[in-house]
Design a binder for these strands. Structure first.
Lengths: 330, 330
DNA sequence: TTGTATGCGTTATCAC
DNA sequence: GTGATAACGCATACAA
């Protein structure tokens, strides 16, 4: 494997000159430049980034931690992150955390040991203390899920008003018994979505019924399970609001298995607008997040941090939209 | 940021000793060891992998190229790859190629420039020449999709017999007009699945009808489109065999939109057994690949190559299974 | 059991 | 415009 030394020798110049050619830094005569390029080709030389990275003390790699790559919600976001990264000469390392704090920590090691220049956290399980410590020492941006009690830039939507919009839509369709499938976690998005749900009920003069609030884990099966629970009640709900499309799709399955019709007997609203939301039967009414843009902004803020351009943390909220489909209106 | 030098100074030992403690290589007295550990903690020292990597000339990183992380088929495979990698002290870098040769090449650069110790290709678009060149110089394993005209280890299933099994199942259900949704690419899996389909028809004395062979791109929409095409024919097929679950799910949608019943009017078979196959309505009959195991084997063979243990390339075929669900039998 | 010294491949500072 | 050379942080051969 040829090194820069070999190229220098072959071209009859110093390594400094070769380096200058490689990085088009500094001046170098056109003629010598070509001699060097010639040598590079002849030796099939590839600069060794291990050397460069050590010298420059940077890797131009970005860690992206997400719970699970198979969650379709994340794929568009990742695309946005990736596009902006590449445009700026960075590469990303996608890391599955499985929502496991230990796994997350393994990846943080890579950052702390300088194998990456910055990190994006998508739904971190880290404690406030760990996050604070991290944010103090390294470039970090929180994407979608975030803690607001740490000074770390985050990019997301306003989950409170998104939930309000979804539930208000159901109210507008005449529903009075509206169930919610939430998740038992401490994510702010969850808290806010529940708060939005309760707020609309209150505004509509409907008393909140704890029996109509169940908990899943964002996944299909948990939606199926909790919806079955609702359907077994004496006083069934006439609408279900789930905080993820996957759970909503599970709920749809449960309703259909029970021989009920959507939306006539029971209406269903999801959250995220994943691709499958428009593939299922009936198509799912859901809250659409600007996933690609969320990814773009996230990466842009991270790069700004890496460059040392931004000092204070920022809170970015992008627009969302309620997509009305056949699962709520005939 | 503390370096090994700082630790050595603080502990009153040489850097060599600190290094020995860090890697538990060589002998070091328990007492000094503890002094060093003390200093490490006090300075909150993190070894800089950039230095180590350069010195060792390895990164313990593995590139994993796949067309698209949002394809649910790959997520289980990646899990297998990841688990084996971690068990062996490697980390993986997931890379979206978007089935774009140029993007693929960008990632190959990372390998050639030594930022990764090896690479796994999931559905590479590279030419035979490029692949040959790559395999000659770096540790490479092909996963699922592969070219057999290059000497590079690959792990997959026997797509020919899998397709035969699927179509035979339809024949067994009494179908005679069986359409196929394939893809226009040069993947061996595609060729073999088409060959299996035609072989079964031949064995069953059914003449192959070119009108019943349409092409998609593995995605939902293309399944919807091609199925609609079939449904508009005078002499409609009574069954559809798609080479991906996503296309099969699209086909199901088309059939239902046309007001026809599954499986009574038209039966549908998919391929891959992704999670959604059991979530859609009706649940999808499909060919199940041992995704997790495919990932494990792939990574194991790659590690063997990196260690220099294996010389010749190998062809690994794992067992598949036909999962029969409501989309083909009542 | 520990320390000294060298080099991994590169970039960047300085002198010419 | 170009060349010598000193780092970057670490692991290791060799000496002690």
């Amino acid at each position: 494997m040829a090194t820069i030394q070999d190229v220098a020798k072959a071209a009859g110049v110093s390594v400094a000159t070769v380096s200058r050619v490689l990085n088009n830094s500094g001046l170098v005569q056109e003629e010598t430049r070509e001699t060097v390029m010639e040598a590079i080709r002849a030796l099939n030389y590839q600069p060794n980034l291990l050397g460069r990275n050590l010298r420059r003390m940077e890797t131009r790699m970005i860690l992206v931690l997400l719970p699970n790559i198979s969650n379709p919600f994340y794929s568009r976001i990742v695309k946005g992150i990736e596009d902006v990264a590449h445009k700026n000469g960075y590469n990303i390392m996608l890391c599955n955390t499985d929502s496991d704090k230990m796994r997350e920590r393994i990846y943080l090691e890579l950052l702390k040991k300088r194998l990456s220049d910055g990190i994006i956290l998508m739904a971190s399980e880290l404690s406030r203390e760990e996050l604070l410590e991290l944010g103090k020492n390294y470039p970090v941006v929180q994407c979608c899920e975030y803690r607001e009690d740490v000074e770390i830039t985050h990019v997301s939507i306003d989950n409170y008003s998104a939930a309000k919009k979804a539930v208000n839509h159901l109210i507008g369709q005449g529903h009075k018994r509206i169930a919610m499938i939430s998740c038992k976690n401490n994510f702010l998005s969850t808290v806010q979505r529940e708060a939005g749900y309760k707020k609309v009920l209150e505004e509509s003069g409907i008393e909140f019924d704890p029996d109509l609030l169940a908990y899943g884990d964002y996944g299909y099966k948990s939606g199926l399970r909790t919806a079955k629970q609702f359907l077994s009640m004496q006083d069934k709900p006439t609408a279900i609001f789930a905080i993820s499309d996957m759970m909503a799709i599970g709920a749809i399955k449960a309703v259909r298995q029970a021989g009920l019709k959507i939306p006539e007997d029971i209406a269903v609203v999801g959250f995220d607008n994943i691709n499958f939301a428009s593939m299922c039967e009936p198509e799912l009414t859901t809250v659409s997040q600007p996933k690609y843009d969320i990814g773009c902004y996230t990466m842009e803020f991270l790069i700004r941090q890496i460059k040392g351009e931004s000092k204070s943390s920022q809170a970015i909220f992008l627009e969302h939209e309620l997509i009305i489909r056949a699962s709520t209106v005939k």
